[in-house]
């Protein structure tokens, strides 16, 4: 992933899609989207906390920070969230509540 793309992703304000449900598992979590019927495997155990906290923070970077994720792991999280955005499990927040 290029630095530009990484920074772009980290700066976005995201939320879990309201039709997506998260089930914690020993390997991370299972996420199911009731709208498009996609089943996604999250393969980081702390991914669940991050996904659930997304809407409470201004940006993805702020969420990772707040969840105590080591900066060295941010690129792999950004990559995971890119694919979650593509499958609509996670979406851009449209209303700015600040």
């Amino acid at each position: 992933m290029s630095t530009d793309l990484l920074n772009d992703l980290l700066g976005r304000s995201l939320e879990l899609h309201p039709q997506a449900a998260v089930r914690p598992e020993p390997f991370g979590a299972l996420v199911y989207h009731y709208g498009n019927r996609r089943l996604v495997f999250l393969q980081h155990t702390d991914m669940v906390a991050v996904a659930r906290a997304l809407s409470q923070h201004a940006t993805l970077a702020d969420t990772l920070e707040a969840c105590g994720v080591d900066q060295r792991r941010w690129p792999s999280f950004a990559k995971a969230f890119e694919s979650l955005l593509n499958s609509d499990i996670v979406r851009e927040r449209t209303t700015d509540e600040r």
């Binding site: 089930r23 598992e25 020993p26 390997f27 991370g28 299972l30 089943l39 495997f41 393969q43 980081h44």
Partner: peptide
Amino acid sequence: MSAESLVNQLKSGLDAPIC
């Protein structure tokens, strides 16, 4: 985690069925 180790995790069972 690699795809292979995910499959190994799934083979050892989950707390509830996926479907």
